[in-house]
Amino acid sequence: MIDRNPPSVLILGATSEIGRAIAAAFAAAGHPLRLAARNSVRLEATCQDLCLRYGVEVTRHEFDVLAVETHAAFLEGLPDLPGVTVCVVGVLGNQRQDEQAPEAARWVMRSTYEGPASVLAEVANRYAVLGQGSIIGISSVAGDRGRASNYIYGSAKAGLSAYLSGLRGRMAKVGVQVMTVKPGFVETRMTAGLPLPPALTAQPEEVGAAVYRGWKHRKDVIYVRPVWRWIMMVIRLLPEWLFKRLSI
């Protein structure tokens, strides 16, 4: 069932474990990869790994999500315009410390919302002209409702989710797929040391597989572990007078 000429896949934020897992899922299906990240020499081992394992072409590219003025040139500098663009960029930050440090909080918000939305805008405009392509944004369940424990990160993800939702509406008319991914808890460097409940926590490989499957079936919004859809539905339905008293 492998496409004879599968489109290349751009992964923004490929040094993250979720980025690597998504790259692997597409590579296993024969897609050439464009891996992009800040300090892209760190991608060397991952490039070697994907190339050896799957025998696909893998290139690596320097990309800084906050340098928004460079995004257009970055896209022009790729070997080809990728058929699929996946944005995994985001920064969790440290909520408690960032509450007292506006500069750090702005960095979280800009890295998680402004940067990703800016680069996806550039990609979307190119896809709109072609009338094809897929945009996959890794958002978060944290964006479904602002919680006291992580609202800086959560507000940026809420922005990204809203952005992707609107972009999906615009792009639907020209045949471009926009998929929002809400992974829930994932066991990665970002969450190392946090006490995560095993039943709600996915491995990065699960996210990779779910993203590939969702892309294949042209889904709009996916939760990696289905239970999260129901959890977040309940959390969204709680009345504010109750929600504000909960420590979640």
Partner: peptide, 9 residues
């Protein structure tokens, strides 16, 4: 388990 890259062949 996460230290799992193929590096060269």
């Amino acid at each position: 388990r996460r230290l799992n890259r193929f590096l060269a062949f």
